[in-house]
Write a protein that binds this DNA or RNA. Structure first.
Length: 290
DNA sequence: CGCATTTCCTGGTAGC
DNA sequence: TGCTACCAGGAAATGC
């Protein structure tokens, strides 16, 4: 499931390919017209200025006649894959460019591929109310603490809302909470003050490390070149139920939270009131590997 | 408004 | 083998 590191990996591959290209035509293939594919009929004749990313959204500003017009918004959802070669099945959008063609495959149709007036996200409420970029200067410990204080929702669920910080999904939420020693069910505003900074640092670290590995491939995610991400072998919590915690050996537990599979160490991430402050077992940010 | 629940969608797999 | 039931989850919609 593409999260920020996977989308950033795709962005870095798309930028040199797409920047400066003219869109000749955008066509729906095996897909019904609707809000997920809105506005594509306006794409023809506009030129792609660049490839940006906000959270898990790819944003491609366009220009026509020398002026900024629309913006192509791409969200990979669960199974979205962008490629320069036609996929064997589940092709939803074909983007004909000057000299090449971009294909958007999306098996489960959770993704989006649409045109909006530049910067107009009224039909994309999550993008409209998204928190700061986790690797940017605005994601400070103080800002994060203020956001957490706004909600009584379990901290993991709140992270997934994209409100306190952008781009965190199910995998990296579990990973960051494990690193910081915070139980995923802890109400956001009850995360101990001493753990807010470590959690913010853990979010930044795990995302940065995964970007360096070109993301995590579990099933469908592929880079534009068709490669799989390499971070899967570094996961400490996600998908490791019943396997020993890499810090303390306790079997990783799996439960359901907000309808999502949730993995945590019952010993390093104790639930409930106020354990002592300090690091979970040893070395919160850099647990032993391998 | 906040918060919880449901919906969308299809391939893979467990169980019989 | 073939069938049914269920699971995976990002974001939006819906229900209080």
């Amino acid at each position: 499931m593409p999260e920020l590191p996977e989308v950033e990996t795709v962005r870095r591959e798309l930028e040199p390919w797409l920047a400066g290209r003219e869109i000749l035509r955008a066509s729906l293939v095996d897909a019904e017209p609707g809000p997920k594919y809105a506005g594509l009929e306006r794409a023809a004749g506009q030129r792609i200025v660049g490839v940006r990313r906000r959270g898990k959204f790819l944003l491609l500003p366009l220009e026509a006649g020398g002026e900024r017009r629309d913006e192509l918004v791409i969200h990979l959802g669960m199974t979205g894959v962008v490629s320069a070669e036609p996929p064997p099945a589940h092709l939803r959008v074909r983007l004909d460019l000057d000299g090449s063609t971009l294909y958007f495959r999306d098996t489960r149709r959770f993704g989006r591929f649409l045109l909006v007036p530049a910067g107009d996200y009224r039909d994309l409420p999550t993008l409209n109310r998204m928190g700061p970029e986790p690797l940017g200067d605005e994601f400070t410990p103080d800002a994060f603490a203020r956001e957490l204080a706004r909600s009584a929702t379990p901290v993991k669920t709140y992270l997934l809302s994209q409100r306190p910080v952008a781009g965190v999904g199910n995998i990296y939420a579990d990973e960051a909470l494990w690193r910081a020693g915070v139980h995923p069910r802890t109400p956001a505003r009850e995360v101990p003050a001493a753990r807010v900074g470590p959690l913010r640092d853990a979010i930044r670290a795990v995302l940065a490390e995964s970007i360096a590995a070109m993301g995590t491939t579990l099933a469908d995610y592929r880079t534009v070149g068709g490669e799989q991400g390499g971070f899967g072998e570094h996961l400490d919590a996600y998908g490791r139920e019943e396997q020993p915690c890499r810090r303390c050996g306790t079997p990783i537990a799996k439960t359901t939270l907000g309808g999502r599979g949730t993995h945590y160490c019952p010993r390093c991430q104790p639930e409930g009131p106020a354990r002592e402050t300090g690091s979970p077992r040893r070395g919160a940010q850099s647990p032993a590997r391998g």
